[in-house]
Amino acid sequence: MDIEDFVPISFEGRVALRGPGGPQECLKAFLDNLLGALVDAGCTAVGHVKGMMTGGGGEPLFFSITTLENNLRFQGGPLGDSDTYTLTMNVIVAGLEERVLTKTFSTVLRGHFNV
């Protein structure tokens, strides 16, 4: 394994919750499924999956995952109530081509949020 094996992608945009529960619950479900989908697609190591969600007049909610075993950690928050939130993310993983990583991310994101 070397540094060149790690591929980064970024996302920044407005998202609306699709499922039940609040923004943190939706975010957790999204991140859990994202990690599973990345592993299924052939991801061999997580550099990091990190980001922040803002909106609703609350405090920014930060999150990060650094292992394939999903050590998801939240910091900050709580977010306020809103129809939409701003989601900002950087994903860097090994074992996937950028095209596959982008497609996997986009598919899982759209399964949990209206983008």
């Binding site: 980064p8 970024s10 996302f11 920044e12 980001g51 922040m52 900002t88 950087n90």
Partner: peptide, 8 residues
């Protein structure tokens, strides 16, 4: 410094 296209 972050390698990603957005600062977090």
């Amino acid at each position: 410094n972050e390698v990603g296209e957005v600062g977090i």
